[in-house]
């Protein structure tokens, strides 16, 4: 019987859930503000948002260390003002997960907010609705399928984050040992059975979330878009 701590599972779920929540809020707000507006520098800004998608995770990790390290601009500020240490802590893992999963959320949300006729929002405005009411009653429900897809993909990406997490949070059992890190260090230590177990768990989590998303999308979005 294999004896192992399940802390990587709960830690991974905790980190991915917090990161997804942050990414959801930031992605939805930024995508809504930016996607339908044209302004100078828009392409540059969007390229910066998508950069973590194309950079090696080690580069992202290096950048985060540079910013959040003990002598980094943000790291020093967080330590001096709030006593929060980012490197070698689960907070660092959350930040790494946020940075690598944000592009997926932004891209999905941006496409979702451009996927419906903008005149439905204009119609609501001419009917006297405030911009907040228009957002929550029109924009958000119409973009919801795309937002949900972005959320699930971001969650799956956050769950699987390895390179940047290792660089900023390191591998501290019980504190920063997420499932991908646990797999790597189990293999390195020759504990293949344990590594296999974690691989199965993370494959099951990733597969079930994307399977559910596909099922939900087929059931709801197709119904929604069907012409009479």
């Amino acid at each position: 019987m294999l004896t192992m701590s399940y802390s990587p599972l709960f830690l991974s779920l905790k980190i991915a859930a917090i990161a997804t929540l942050l990414v959801f809020v930031a992605g939805v707000i930024l995508a809504r503000v930016i996607s339908r507006n044209l302004f100078p520098g828009k392409s540059i800004l969007e390229s910066v948002f998508l950069l973590p998608l194309v950079l090696p995770p080690t580069v992202v990790g290096f950048g985060l260390l540079y910013l959040f390290g003990k002598n980094g601009i943000l790291g020093k500020w967080l330590m001096d003002w709030f006593g929060v240490q980012v490197v070698f802590s689960w907070i660092g893992a959350v930040i790494a997960a946020v940075v690598v999963s944000f592009p997926l959320m932004y891209q999905s949300a941006s496409a979702a907010f451009q996927n419906y006729d903008s005149n439905v929002e204009n119609a609501a405005l001419t009917m006297g609705a405030s911009r907040l009411k228009v957002f929550f009653t029109i924009s958000f429900p119409l973009a919801w399928p795309g937002l949900l897809a972005g959320t699930v993909l971001s969650f799956a990406r956050a769950l699987g984050e390895f390179g940047a997490t290792l660089m900023i949070a390191g591998y501290i059992p019980g504190q920063t040992d997420t499932i991908p890190l646990a797999i790597y260090f189990a293999v390195e230590a020759g504990r293949m059975e344990q590594a296999k177990m974690w691989v199965l768990i993370i494959v099951a989590l990733g597969f079930s979330s994307t399977l559910w998303l596909n099922w939900w999308t087929r059931r709801n979005v197709l119904l929604f878009n069907r012409k009479s």
Partner: peptide
Amino acid sequence: RIGYLFQNYALFPH
């Protein structure tokens, strides 16, 4: 308070 009827009607599909 000016009513506007758009070319494609812009009804709220949901």
